[in-house]
Amino acid sequence: MPWANRLGHYWQRGAAACSSAQIAVIESWVLAKLRASVILPNLRKTVPAAEHVRKRAQPPALAPGAAPHSRARSLLRRVARLGQPYFVSVATDGAPIRRALHMDNALLGHVLLVDAAGHVRWQAHGDAAPGEAERLIQLTRRLLSEAPETAGNSS
């Protein structure tokens, strides 16, 4: 398998079990001009229409005992309605994004764990050090337990 396709192997189209999406950042202004007229129409032909936007199988869970009209409930309902696009094409300069998220070395892979309110809670780069991937999973589980409360404080 070509190295560039390794990650795609894990999160590829058809892996419906994964709640994942691909964000393609276009930095070249030439490609950005061609995005709507050439790139996206070609991708639409190769990707089944059902996978253009994948609706969530189930709405996000609320904390037990949450108020019936709480802000958290309202936010989660909006997120559930939005659905889950599989592919998003973003035409922008990547440098400000990298600066904002403290990703100084653009040559490495960066992993960010973001909580329900959009705050970066954990970050790593390069190959996973021993125990680092386990740490990511552990912190994600912790965020899952606090997600509804955090979401309620966000908007």
Partner: peptide, 23 residues
């Protein structure tokens, strides 16, 4: 977390044509 809708995983790449053309 495969199959767990409560966790989102987004892959951000610099590839205009998307993952299917990455090869």
């Amino acid at each position: 977390f495969g199959g767990d809708d409560r966790v989102g995983v987004y892959e951000v790449s610099r590839c205009a044509a998307g993952p299917w053309r990455r090869h």
